[in-house]
Simulated scan of single mutants.
Amino acid sequence: MEEFFDTHNYIAYPETIVKLARELIKVVDDYTSRKITNEDLRKVILFYADNSPDKLFNGSDYNITIKRKIGVKRLRIIESLLNGYQHRLR
Rank of each mutant, 00 (worst) to 15 (best):
L82W: 03
T16G: 06
R74N: 11
P53V: 06
N9Y: 11
D61A: 11
E39W: 04
L41D: 03
V27F: 00
I25Q: 13
K67I: 12
E2G: 05
N63R: 07
S60V: 11
Y13Q: 08
T37G: 07
L89T: 13
A49D: 03
E79F: 01
K73C: 04
R90D: 14
S52Q: 12
L56D: 02
K69Y: 11
E2H: 09
V72A: 11
N38L: 11
I70F: 02
R68T: 09
S60A: 11
K67Y: 02
F57S: 03
D6M: 11
S52W: 00
F4S: 02
N83A: 15
K67N: 06
F4K: 04
G59H: 11
I77A: 05
A21I: 08
I45D: 02
Y10M: 09
F4R: 03
T37P: 03
Y48L: 00
D61Q: 12
D54I: 03
K55V: 01
L89W: 11
D54N: 12
N38P: 01
L20D: 00
M1C: 06
T16N: 04
G59R: 10
P53Q: 07
L46A: 02
N63W: 05
A21F: 05
K26S: 13
L89H: 12
K73Y: 09
R68F: 01
N9F: 13
I66D: 00
N83E: 14
I70H: 00
D30F: 08
N38F: 10
N51Y: 09
F47K: 02
A12G: 08
S52P: 01
K55G: 02
T7I: 13
L75A: 10
F47S: 06
L20M: 08
L41G: 04
F4L: 15
P14E: 07
P53M: 07
Y62G: 04
Y31S: 03
D6W: 08
T65L: 09
R42S: 13
G59V: 08
L56R: 01
L24W: 03
T65N: 07
T7R: 15
D6E: 15
R76F: 10
S52D: 06
R88A: 10
K55W: 01
D30G: 09
N83V: 09
H87Q: 08
D54T: 08
A21P: 04
T16L: 03
D40S: 14
